[in-house]
Design a protein around this nucleic acid. Structure first.
Lengths: 168, 168
DNA sequence: TCTGAAAATGAGTATGCTTATCAAAAGATG
DNA sequence: CATCTTTTGATAAGCATACTCATTTTCAGA
């Protein structure tokens, strides 16, 4: 996967947000996307991006706020709306109490989610290329049939994570 | 698609919840599922099932309450939790203000959702059998790999519905 | 068909996530 | 450097949803 000047994004387990050595490119791309909608890449927004990138899986807002004592809750809520609008962050809605956020697709490899119905934790997984491709084209056909203009798709697998299975 | 005594469920456009002539079977199955968790199929719960079945697409709670003047908001919230737990109704969370509900799979053919990011409306669509099958097995493999015990999957296509495209 | 215990209802209230407000701080513009 | 705009942060407000509890309904056993 290549972004910008040719930086390669690597995978952790199962997915990493970005290669540790290329932080700068993440911030450059984030700044660029914000500029596109006339928004600044402020210190607070940069810190949110760092936290999301370091996590490697979707975080709730309390988790984001708790991981950096300089972040004010109200600003995090507001900035995540801005980052979402800029295409830097993506909101993940589950039936849990808190929404979760992760970096958007150019920052993050295309993936899907394992949502634990017990603890609310969300992990990432990817589909084999062939399955993803046939799914994509089927979705395009379905949308076209209904006159629907698609922008994205989300695929979640709900169930119980290993920890909660062990817990009972 | 066959349920219980062999009743055939038909499709409207694009999906219907049940064939109008076989309402009784829907209620019998709902009652049976509630009984399984020691819950009664009361008049209020029956009305909710009727409203959901008649709609043919996922409804918000205000929509459900508004369509039947005998339904109290607090009871609808509480009963939808019960119906969800019994496996009669399914909750659909979008980024919109209200959650939406539809009848669960034995009542409804397996399908996915077109979620309009502008107006929040949710419509149904189905995938070709082959795509659905390869997706299913890919999901099973992915879950197994992570030690995740899957119960269900959800696939949403987000974008703009025809009405909102026309509106601008 | 009674009768009483258990469950469900409904109106109001409480909870808690999220968003709006607004004065102060930071940054851009010329 | 001066001014105008954007962003911030603490607080308050909004709002979907869950809880409370007295009343009503349901169902099992007599």
């Amino acid at each position: 996967m290549t972004i910008g000047t040719g930086t390669v994004f690597h995978l952790r387990s199962p997915l990493a947000s970005y290669h540790l050595g290329v932080k700068q490119d993440v911030h450059q791309l984030a700044a660029q996307r914000l500029r596109r909608i006339s928004q600044r890449y402020t210190a607070g927004r940069r810190r949110i991006v760092e936290v999301l990138a370091a996590a490697g899986h979707p975080l709730t807002i309390p988790e984001i706020v708790g991981s950096d004592s300089d972040l004010a809750t109200s600003s995090v809520y507001r900035n995540l709306v801005t980052l979402e609008h800029a295409g830097v962050a993506t909101r993940i809605v589950t039936s849990q109490e808190h929404a979760r956020f992760e970096l958007s697709e150019p920052f993050n490899r295309h993936h899907h989610h394992l949502v634990c119905v017990d603890c609310g934790k969300v992990d990432d997984f990817i589909l084999p290329k062939g399955v993803e491709e046939s799914l994509d084209s089927a979705l395009r056909r379905a949308a076209q049939k209904e006159g629907f203009a698609p922008t994205d798709h989300r695929l979640d697998l709900t169930g119980t994570c290993p920890d909660c299975q062990a817990a009972g």
